[in-house]
Design a protein around this nucleic acid. Sequence first.
DNA 1: TGCTTATATAAGTGTTTGCTTATATAATGG
DNA 2: CCATTATATAAGCAAACACTTATATAAGCA
Lengths: 115, 115
Amino acid sequence: MTIGNKLDIDQGAKIVKILGDKTRLNIVSLLMHDECCVCELVELLEMSQPSISQHVAKLKTAGIVKERRQGQWIFYRVDPDSEAFPLVESIVQHFPNQKDRIRELEVKGLRVCCD
Amino acid sequence: MTIGNKLDIDQGAKIVKILGDKTRLNIVSLLMHDECCVCELVELLEMSQPSISQHVAKLKTAGIVKERRQGQWIFYRVDPDSEAFPLVESIVQHFPNQKDRIRELEVKGLRVCCD
DNA sequence: TGCTTATATAAGTGTTTGCTTATATAATGG
DNA sequence: CCATTATATAAGCAAACACTTATATAAGCA
């Protein structure tokens, strides 16, 4: 997929296509700097659980996010070691940082914490 | 659409979606540094004229490329003044430069020139 | 074991997409 | 004015998409 530091257009277009959806772009913006589980994304994006799970599955299949199971929860985050990461990062940087959205969740007591 | 130097996610996702197609990503990579007309793109991408025209129309409607009519030909190029340009540029930079492809066209005598 | 919570997956459906073929529009040159 | 070239646009169609509802899987806990 890589030629030097360049991506192959066919494979790269698949990554761009996955990110070309407002729900997934939102999810990736959230998961770029924070780890979230599906139920948090359901709250943040106000969408059904199956819909969020399906979007996350596409991101995972594409290698954009990775998962970490902890008890009942599965936490997702953008995989910084992915070959597509530089592309993902340079797209996401054009959109507003989502830290405030996550802070709102904490304030509402909806942030999942398993320490 | 813009908040500071950041794009709105909904509008930005539309730009990313337009670029999430290998044909359009190819076209934009070609038109980032060179001007081409539809018939040149037909040669370069080996696709039908209506198909190329339809892809170019999407890019034009999104404001990603602009046109310049010269006689029978309409030359297209990426619009550097577009609000979406920084996003477009930061996506395209991850893919191979297409200057060689255009040079091949010149060698084959298929490059349109109206000087 | 059985109940609850979290998540995934499957099946169904209306919408969108990207091609095709056919035709329309526009400019050039005899 | 007519033929040619370049481009756009329309109609049709199969495939992909993003939801929905229903169900399956998996972990935690009484």
